[in-house]
Each structure stands twice: as structure tokens, then as C-alpha cells.
């Protein structure tokens, strides 16, 4: 029983990690309808920034978020403005996807050039110490990640539903043309949304960096799972991403322990496929929106 609880706790912590990384991705997808393949590299950039700030200035990794999140906001906004925006009118929307693939490769190689192929260690500042909660043992840093992910979901939902800007963003997401007719500056909303999505990744970077060594390819370790989480939860749904992440985390942990580490990916992706067959739009997804066609 004790072991089972520990496996579940490990799964929850892993789910929190997947959630904090996936929220920005689903936000960008839900609003701009662009699949950002450079998402993992945004995380990598944020983690290197956290590494530099903590090692050069001696700050706590969490404190670096006041620099990292705004910096990632700018990176996201600039990506939207200079890379995605000019391609929005392209006849085939796949052009944007390949643009983000190109951005991803360029960012990995730029990081290789600057930081080399070695790993960079952000000081863990005590976040790697484990705490005993009843029968289970978890890492302090992982617990904070789970809490922050939950708070971020609540905060973003509040922003999108209760503020004027949030409503404008949702209007654009629901129907780009109609929103434009209502006088919303669609391009500005896109730049803002990409920036917010990227800033969420910035927050994730500062939380994740003290727990995982940073390298130029760290993004590729997380990005596939992030996509699975986002599709499972329903593309564009923020609570969906959170629930999807927890499910994937639990599955990964349970399958890894009770079935075998070599088969855990087969189990995770098998369950993922079954859910999609039963509910093609994902757990929290709505049907295909008309704006997709407009």
C-alpha cells in the first residue's frame, strides 16, 4: 500500500511538471491556432536564462522569474510579430508549422554555439530536498511546481473570463472574422496571446531549472509529452491541459512501476489513442470551431 501511494505521489508530481510546461502551449494553440514546435526551445531558452541569472547574480532560481517571464513574453511576442504574422495570410496554414520547426532547429543550434554541448547546472537552492508527507516522500521543488501549475490555471481562467482583454482574446479565438468586425485589433491580440503563452513557459523554466540540468536539447525531452497532454486535454483548453498532464503523469508512473519501464511509453500512448478514439476532441475539447475555416 505504501509503495502504491508512493507511485501515485510520483505520478502526481510528474503530472505537475507536464502541466506547467503544457499550459503555454495550449494557450497559444487555442487562440492563434498555430502549433508551436519551438515550444520546447522556449523552455530551453528560459532555463538557460534562469541558469545565468542564478549563477551570475546569486539569486534564488524562483526570484529569476521576474526577469525570465517578461523576457519570454518579449520572445513570444516578437516570434508572433516577425515570424507567424506575415505567414497568417499564407494559403496553407502548414507553412506556419514549418516556420516554427525552423525556429526550433535554429534555437537549438544557437544554444549549442553559445553554451556548447555540455549541461549547465542551476543551483538547486534546497529545492531538491525531500519532505515526508505521511507515508510518501516527495521533492520540495516538485510540490511547488504542482501548486504553481494549479494556480496558473485558475489565474488564466479568471483573466480570460473576467477581464476585458481576456474576453477579447476569447472572442478572437472563437471567430477571428467576427471579432475583427466588432472592432477588436486581431493582430494585437495575437501578439499579446503569444507573449502570454511564452511568459507561462518562462514561469515554468524558473521552476524546472533547479530540478533538471539544462542543455541545448532539453526542450526535445519535454515537447512530445507536452503535445500529448494538450491534445488529450482538448486543444486550447487550459483546465484540460492540467487534467491531461495529471493523467499522463499518473499513467507514466503506474505503468513504469507495475508493468515495466520498457513498456511505459506503449501504455501511455495506447491509453492516449483509446481516449482520442472515444472522444476525438479531447477530454475538455469542443467541436471544431468555424473560425478554423474562415
Amino acid at each position: 500500500m505504501e509503495t502504491f501511494l508512493q507511485v501515485v505521489a510520483n505520478g502526481l508530481m510528474l503530472g505537475g511538471l507536464f502541466a506547467i510546461i503544457s499550459i503555454g502551449l495550449t494557450l497559444i494553440f487555442g487562440i492563434i491556432k498555430v502549433v508551436n514546435f519551438a515550444h520546447g526551445e522556449f523552455l530551453m531558452a528560459g532555463m538557460f536564462l534562469t541558469y545565468l541569472i542564478t549563477t551570475q547574480l546569486g539569486l534564488h532560481p524562483y526570484a529569476s522569474v521576474v526577469v525570465v517571464a517578461p523576457a519570454l513574453f518579449v520572445l513570444g511576442a516578437v516570434t508572433q510579430k516577425l515570424l507567424i504574422q506575415p505567414l497568417l495570410s499564407a494559403r496553407d496554414e502548414h507553412v506556419q508549422i514549418f516556420a516554427t520547426v525552423g525556429l526550433s532547429t535554429a534555437m537549438i543550434n544557437l544554444a549549442l554555439l553559445i553554451f556548447g554541448a555540455d549541461i549547465a547546472n542551476t543551483p538547486s537552492s534546497g529545492l531538491r530536498s525531500s519532505i515526508q508527507l505521511g507515508p510518501v516522500r516527495i521533492l520540495e521543488g516538485q510540490l511547488y511546481i504542482l501548486i504553481c501549475a494549479a494556480l496558473l490555471v485558475v489565474g488564466l481562467e479568471f483573466f480570460l473570463r473576467r477581464t476585458q482583454t481576456g474576453r477579447a482574446i476569447r472572442a478572437v479565438a472563437q471567430n477571428r472574422a467576427a471579432a475583427q468586425l466588432m472592432g477588436i485589433n486581431v493582430n494585437w491580440i495575437y501578439v499579446l496571446s503569444f507573449g502570454i503563452g511564452a511568459a507561462c513557459v518562462g514561469l515554468a523554466s524558473s521552476l524546472v531549472a533547479p530540478l533538471y540540468p539544462t542543455s541545448s536539447t532539453i526542450g526535445t525531452y519535454f515537447v512530445l509529452t507536452a503535445f500529448v497532454v494538450v491534445v488529450l486535454g482538448g486543444l486550447g483548453s487550459i483546465p484540460g491541459a492540467f487534467v491531461g498532464a495529471i493523467i499522463i503523469g499518473l499513467l507514466d508512473s503506474l505503468a513504469g512501476f507495475y508493468i515495466g519501464s520498457d513498456l511505459r511509453e506503449a501504455v501511455v500512448f495506447g491509453v492516449f489513442l483509446v481516449i482520442l478514439i472515444l472522444k476525438p476532441s479531447g477530454l475538455f475539447g469542443t467541436r471544431l470551431k468555424l473560425s478554423h475555416i474562415s
Binding site: 510520483n10 519501464s261 520498457d262
Partner: peptide, 15 residues
Amino acid sequence: QGYPAATVDMSSIVL
């Protein structure tokens, strides 16, 4: 036991 090199969690193997 095998596992993918790009794994982000090995807690179940450790356990």
C-alpha cells in the same frame, strides 16, 4: 530494464 534516454523521470525504476 530499458528506458528511453530522453526520459524525465526515473522514480518508478528506482522504486
